[in-house]
Design a binder for these strands. Structure first.
Lengths: 167, 167
DNA sequence: CTCCGATACTTGGAAGTCCTAGATTCTCGG
DNA sequence: CCGAGAATCTAGGACTTCCAAGTATCGGAG
């Protein structure tokens, strides 16, 4: 399988970065860590969802619809809420529709807008998927609750500064 | 442009998650935050590298070669050090080679192995790119040094548990 | 010395993300 | 009321990542 390195590759990068005088070492290290963390948890999450025929992004879209009052939302609004590009939503909804978990319906009153509506099959799957993800704790089982909260709080500043939402 | 939401979408997800009794709310929140943070910094980094004709993954590969004693490494070793799949390295080196920033050379003594060697053009570009990234602080300029360190330390546990390296 | 499993890389395919560029449809100011 | 600009979605392309399979090579067991 995957043999672990005898040293931490990010520590090694820090050393090299410092030796070469490239600056912003802490930021480099944090950015690399976040990238790797994303990779690890995404892999674990998708592994847990595979038996259900879902991926993380499709699950997120499905959960958003499930949470909505009427079970339907305009694609554009979904993109904003999920913080992804509009074309990604089109792609995601395409797949979900192919699998019968969502259906597109016209918006009454605005013919530009398309609504995605979760189907009964979609509801059934999203509930199972949520249980599967809670089971593996989103791949973050080793992290104590205080660390999880700390990550949240710290990253909130970045999201805020990036203009995701108002204070 | 991108109008900020009047509320934090991750907070909203926490509420929904809790109301539905889906469990592991803190883990869900942290996983979503990490995903979003990755998205934000990757976008900023690639923006800063675009004028140089690089992407983040290509920069990482180039920097690794630049740091190596001889300027050349087997592709397999690069994959382990960069913590990505072997086929991703093949892809990345393909692009870098097309742009004349690295060249493939045979390994003396093992004909299975292919070495990627950084070229003078590659060296020139990677130094400029490092300066550009330090300039924008890897998209993490808002984060104080203590937060950057905290992120690092916390995520180290996840990477360790994922088998990235030995303690 | 030969054979067969392990290693190293590449190919082809599936997913996801984003961007640029259309085609519709709505809205509001003149 | 009508036309220009804004808003909404889709199409096509670039990029990354991964997986599954295939080819070539090495190296140790018998």
């Amino acid at each position: 399988m995957n043999v672990p390195l005898p040293f931490d590759p990010i520590d090694e990068a820090r050393r090299n970065w410092t030796v070469h005088g490239w600056g912003a070492t802490d930021a480099m290290s944090a950015a690399t860590s976040i990238t790797r963390a994303h990779q690890i948890i995404l892999h674990r999450i998708n592994e847990a969802l595979r038996p259900l025929g879902l991926t993380f992004s499709r699950f997120e879209a499905l959960a958003l619809l499930h949470f909505s009052r009427t079970g339907a939302l305009p694609l554009g609004k979904m993109g904003v809420r999920l913080m992804v590009h509009p074309t990604s939503v089109t792609n995601t909804v395409d797949r979900l529709e192919t699998d019968g978990l969502v259906e597109r319906t016209p918006h009454p009153g605005d013919r530009r807008t398309v609504l995605a509506r979760i189907t009964p099959a979609g509801t059934e799957v999203v509930v199972k998927a949520a249980a599967a993800l809670a089971e593996i704790e989103f791949g973050l089982g080793v992290m104590p609750a205080t660390s999880l909260r700390a990550i949240d709080t710290t990253i909130r500043d970045v999201r805020l500064e990036a203009g995701d939402f108002l204070p």
